[in-house]
Design a protein around this nucleic acid. Sequence first.
DNA 1: AGCACGCCGACT
DNA 2: GTCGGCGTGCTC
Length: 751
Amino acid sequence: MANRRANPEPFTEVTENAQLFADERVRVLLPLPLGEAYDYALPPGMTVEAGSIVEVPLGQRRVTGVVWDATPAGGKVAAEKLKPVIRVFDVPPLPEVGRRFVDWVAAYYLAEPGTVLKMSLSAPAALEPPVPTVGYLRGEGDPEALGLRLTPARRRVLSVLADGPPRPAAELAREAGVSAGVIKGLADAGVLERVAMYDAPGFEVPADAPEGPALSESQAAAARSLSAKVRDGFSVTLIDGVTGSGKTEVYFEAVKAALRQGRQVLVLLPEIALSAQWLERFAARFGVAPAVWHSECTQAQRRATWRAVARGEAPVVVGARSALFLPYPDLGLVVVDEEHDQAFKQEDGVPYHARDMAVVRARLGGFPAVLVSATPSLESLENVRAGRYDSVHLPERHAGAQLPDIEAIDMRADRPPPIQGHGQSFIAPSLRDAVGETLAAGEQALLFLNRRGYAPLTLCRACGHRLQCPNCTAWLVEHRLVDSLQCHHCGYMARVPQSCPECGAEHSFAACGPGVERLHEEVKALFPEARVALMASDTVTGPAAAARFIESVQNREIDLLIGTQIVAKGNHFPYLTLVGVVDADLGLAGGDLRAGERTYQLLHQVAGRAGRAERPGRVMLQTYEPVHEVIQALVSGDRDRFLAVEAENRRKAGMPPFARLAALILSSPDEAAVDAVARALARAAPQGEGIEVMGPAPAPLAILRGRHRRRMLLRTRRDIAPQPLLRDWLRQVEVPGKVRLSVDVDPYHFL
DNA sequence: AGCACGCCGACT
DNA sequence: GTCGGCGTGCTC
């Protein structure tokens, strides 16, 4: 049931101390890639202030923009050419700190300010006044005096309304057990009064939440120190603690401290859509649900949340990275949970890193940022080491549960035997036995394989032809569940052909290597009795499906779960005691800068799914390289030594976090045109002490969506900001329209 | 980002 | 002869 309230909704007050513009010229930043704010004429009688959200004409259309800074002196566009501001929206102005943040992000990532602003204006419907529902109250009119017969139905309506708040007709009719006609009749006669009702945001989080669970000494100390920081302006603290060490409980105390100060709190999660468990935890602690913001929110939810945030009526927002750009009037704490997660790096649109920008937002707003992880990023650890960030260690596992025992299976010695009728198999005998024992004990097992579909490569046995994407330099992956071939890079889909497109041989395709669907097949052959479920992004479509899956595992309706990294994210399965990582080497190939770090983080997180209740967990890693430092680190549990080695390798190689990188990606359907621009860029490359340019080279995905791609990499010493170099560099090179040049500052992926 | 203006193929 | 394809370019 929606919360409603009868107080008037519209926002009309003028912000205190606001500098109202009386000039006839205002600068308006539009959420478009225009390079700069445009000047508009302010019609007589209309007043705006910096941050006012306005509608202006642009060419043939009307767009929403934000009055950006103080009135420009003069301006380069002649006053006669200025078009007038059409209207000012009746919402609070975008706060000063939010505007500075947009400018900061745009400058850092060399993006157009307008494209960054677009992320702040992401709920257009929120700007329009809400449409009220009609509510009914007991009115002045006396039924007797009006000569109205008090039928039992009418009497029930009046008695329902006697005690309380106004209700919409449908609700009132249901409560009183009458038809809508009775209510309408009473209202028309004047016995009931009609009032406008607005959906209340319902995001209020009490500042005096009940006491949480008892904290251990170290947790309590950490909580106290974080809570104290909430009063002390900007700081960054890394909470570094293993799964189950109570990190969430600790930062909840900081949330509570910020709420007590009357300030807003933002918690960023990597994939909010999959974190129903986090929301339950929050609700259990604070008694209410927080405002939620992510890409899967409906238009109505976005509208309500944006509005509530802007009006200061959403004390706690939990969201994906884009929640950083909401118009908080008084943000007082930002928490980045799972701070190492690469999902915080946005790759399309403006490529920004939400963890880093959360720190920037905290600095601009003068409040603390808290980064949380069981496997912190090397960046954050280096910031701690250098004294830029504080850190809090939460060593012990809470409530006596044991860390899982991790072992490596050497696949060279413990080879999976072929299965009749299935060809290759991928589960080593020792893992198979362990799964058998686990199921026999009535416990659950998870087989983790971070590869969607049936097989990563399909080829023709007759001629060796490999099924390739027509638009990309990538193999097509067969998805048997939906009977299609898919490109995981561009979304291309096709039916599996009957015969080889190259040699025409019939039924000649052979699957190479495992995907989760193929693993599923093998598992069904090995454990025909087990109830098996497959969890991948194509079987889990959206948060509701994810919640159903998780629930069925928790209810023990499933014995054996097969999943991609979608299962790694923060789900708690109390009866899961065995995790088998089918291909622990998978992420290590390819020579990516962060391959080792990422694989360690992912497998550590997957391993954490095992044995979280009172049952001890067991984790088995299938590997062809058991001596690899990542595998060794997981098996020995010596995370810090691994990170030290990894950091030392990066330092020696002159790579982040000990240097700065920026990638240039050129793309065009016309290969010659891309190469011409690449050569021109190479000629104009910046030079100097501590500056290095690599490339151009074909990108690892040399053709993506039909566009030829070239990469260049600028590397600078940590103390040299790459942005001025990049700006200077790009200014010198003419880029024809059909060639796209994008800049990725602090790149994470090297595709 | 839209939307218009602008030059080349299949249709009333 | 027009309707319409989407390639370039502008929007205060």
